[in-house]
Write a protein that binds this DNA or RNA. Sequence first.
DNA 1: AAGCGTGGGTGACAATTGTCATTCTCGCTG
DNA 2: CAGCGAGAATGACAATTGTCACCCACGCTT
Lengths: 210, 210
Amino acid sequence: MPSTGKESRKTIRVVLAEDQGMVLGALAALLEIEGDISVIAKAHNGNEALDAVLAHKPDVFITDIEMPHMSGLDVAAELKRRRTGTRVVIVTTFARTGYLRRALEAGASGYLLKDMRAEELADAVRRVHQGLRVIHPELATEAWGEMDPLTDRERQVLRLAGEGLASGDIASQLGLSDGTVRNYLSEAISKLGANNRVEAARIARTKGWL
Amino acid sequence: MPSTGKESRKTIRVVLAEDQGMVLGALAALLEIEGDISVIAKAHNGNEALDAVLAHKPDVFITDIEMPHMSGLDVAAELKRRRTGTRVVIVTTFARTGYLRRALEAGASGYLLKDMRAEELADAVRRVHQGLRVIHPELATEAWGEMDPLTDRERQVLRLAGEGLASGDIASQLGLSDGTVRNYLSEAISKLGANNRVEAARIARTKGWL
DNA sequence: AAGCGTGGGTGACAATTGTCATTCTCGCTG
DNA sequence: CAGCGAGAATGACAATTGTCACCCACGCTT
């Protein structure tokens, strides 16, 4: 064992959050195999995760992004605000630069994709625990490729439009006028270089701007 | 081959397929914990999976559905055609009745969702190995709830419409006339009880009819 | 041969969507 | 105070979308 410092002797205490029960359990099993890592709590959603981290003060918090009630990014942001010492590692399916950017803004120390080799996870945890930053290589390069050009309103409207709601419905749901909704949509469509609301929504989604 | 009584003593040989490397490794770790289950091969996509199963003739083949090149359902169908003795367990994120129906048609013995408890996986594998069928409870009930009401054309058209293509584009891509495309779309919309093409596409997707 | 179902097509019309220019408020900021 | 910019709304117009009633050509039945 390389002794970078004092604490590399002790086991690394981890809290794990992931909404798919099966994946949660499997990841826990994977980490428990490593002698120096111990999963002290598991959470199925953002709220549970936040509680667990505050209660256990783990060394590292590993979380998915898309979860019920509170996203992993939200939890990370909240932890940053509260200045807990816990380091955060995001593990997600999505290679969206928007997510990565938000993760870093929320103070995450790691951003990994689920399609990387399983063996690398434990290693990433150790590195992060030592204060290093671990970003999935493919993302690291193009990370700051492009900024989200959408305003809040445009985002909201686009999200609903992508679900198939008509302009009128969107308008009443947001307390706006029908015409205004169409204006925002039009703006969003042109900003994203799309031909219509559906394509615009699709583009925004794949970029992680939702 | 010995009677069912004896071989329940031996370890169950499993091949595992899943495109997300991390989940693949984690599930393998989870299964290896069990003394009576042994993961003899792992595959990252449908092709590899098929090869691995044919080469190793495992007792049970566990696979995700959505994978590159060949879906888990395709692999299952191929295995059925070839009459290998291997039993198939589908493990997926999607609670789509269409998927379940296709899985059963392809001769799968199990259909589980990733959001169930991790501990249940090993158990399901044992049951399936004994010749039982294991269907995720929530799906088992409504499984045959409703059949896909869409015709092939409607499906094609709806798929493209859902991507954001305009009627004209869809028409030229399928070699149809603009009006015909709109007729199909209109039919699909009314069959699905939607209000427009986007909603229709969304509904069809969640039902697994695509 | 008459009848029928299916896949594809027309044409017409109403509703929804996309685009623009313009207006009205606020809340800032110089 | 004047002026600017963001957020929201109007109105008008063109394009696209959704609906419907029919038409046509084939391929099968009877």
